[in-house]
Simulated assay, not measured.
Amino acid sequence: MSRSSRTPMSPTPCATRSRGWPDMLSTLPTSREAWVFPVPDLGDRRPEVSDGWASTRYSVDDKAKASVARLHLGADIMFRRRQRGELAEIYRPGTRHGTANYFMPDMVPAIAASAGVVIFAQWTGVGFTVKVFHPDGWTTYYTHLSLVSVAEGQAVVAGQPVGIIGFDPRDRRKLMHLHFELWRGRDDRRGATNPGPYLAAWERRSVPWTWPATAHRNAGLTYRPVGKSGERYPEWLHALKGKSGVYVIRERRGSDPPAVVYVGQSSTGRLFETLTRHLQTWRRWKGFWKGQYAEGHDPGLTYDRARVEVAVRVTSPAESIEEEARLIARLRPRDNLIGQPDEVPF
């Protein structure tokens, strides 16, 4: 992670003593040396507060069978859309990935706001929750996590991942976001303080991030060459390792317009491997397809690298199959045997 030059504002030290962790806390730098925003920038995208301090929330009291109003004691953090509809085809409003104005990708880490000791890291009714106690007597609270990457009693430093952002399982929308709180004192929610002014001043950290090539589903795909046989694949192809999504292969035909020949997908984080197997014609003669899905036809089609171009759209694992079907219906690829529109004869 890289850090920006922004000057952090640290909370004033609290009088609360560090009960239970004095030895470990004494080895950490004082909190005022570094406070950072608890969600990293993703490339050039900066997260922000999507719902702040003291907004009104409603929950159902099961005993009273009635809706109960309560105040929001922290800040919800997401990424703002730069314009209406931006990235809406990938992080659709009304789904767990977004609203009309904000969105949250999969696998975004929540990071420790400052150095401290993890005093709680467990599943709760609102998702996985982490609490970090800091040397100056403050506690930071992170919840709606889909998993945690720290353990109770572990020392952390500013910017260290504490978990992956998920959603509140009680929320009917299942909207992905980080809920963050700042408390005066050790593990005492009665000391909850408006984190807004602090968040606005804290340093930012960033992580490398590859965004989808297009912001809208109906925007044109960007096709790129993949080199010749025997050459190393381009770096943009290697960057697909560990990702899910869809790919479109089109073939150049002399002076005629290129023809879309194949659409495929990976929903298991193997987009690079799934795509490039169509470019490895030599493996056809070494039993590469033996025992694999649909051996002998789809997806055992291979193409001459020198004659094709490829477009890729990175998606969440859950969206890749749906996106593949949509592109097949739209582009009518020549060689797909699965998912072609009914009116296409075979």
Score class of each variant (00 low, 15 high):
D41P: 00
P208C: 02
G20I: 04
F103H: 06
Y247D: 01
Y102S: 12
G196M: 15
R80W: 03
Y198F: 11
P345V: 09
S26A: 14
L147M: 11
F120R: 15
A66K: 14
G43S: 12
T95K: 07
F288K: 00
G74W: 05
R232D: 09
Y58T: 14
G196T: 10
R32C: 05
D76V: 08
A121W: 02
F167N: 06
P105R: 09
P225S: 13
K241H: 11
G137H: 03
V246Q: 02
K174A: 15
V308T: 06
M9S: 12
G191W: 10
E319H: 07
D188P: 00
V157N: 02
S255V: 13
Y303P: 01
F120S: 05
R307Q: 06
G287P: 07
E203A: 11
V150I: 07
P11S: 07
M24I: 10
G159V: 07
V117Q: 02
R80F: 07
D62E: 13
A239F: 04
W209N: 04
P22M: 09
R307C: 03
W21V: 04
E319C: 05
T16Y: 03
L182K: 00
K290S: 15
Q154D: 10
P47F: 06
E323S: 08
E273P: 02
F272L: 10
M107N: 13
D106A: 12
I90M: 04
Y303E: 02
F288S: 07
P169T: 09
P258W: 10
S114F: 04
R82A: 14
R190T: 13
L271Y: 08
F120C: 00
G269Y: 05
P195R: 09
P169G: 15
K65W: 04
T276P: 01
A294L: 14
H177K: 15
H144M: 08
L301A: 06
W211D: 05
E235A: 15
E319R: 09
K290M: 05
T56I: 14
V68M: 13
K286V: 08
H179V: 08
A112F: 05
R224M: 12
P13K: 06
K286M: 09
S149V: 05
V310E: 03
T30S: 13
I328S: 02
D23A: 15
R32Y: 06
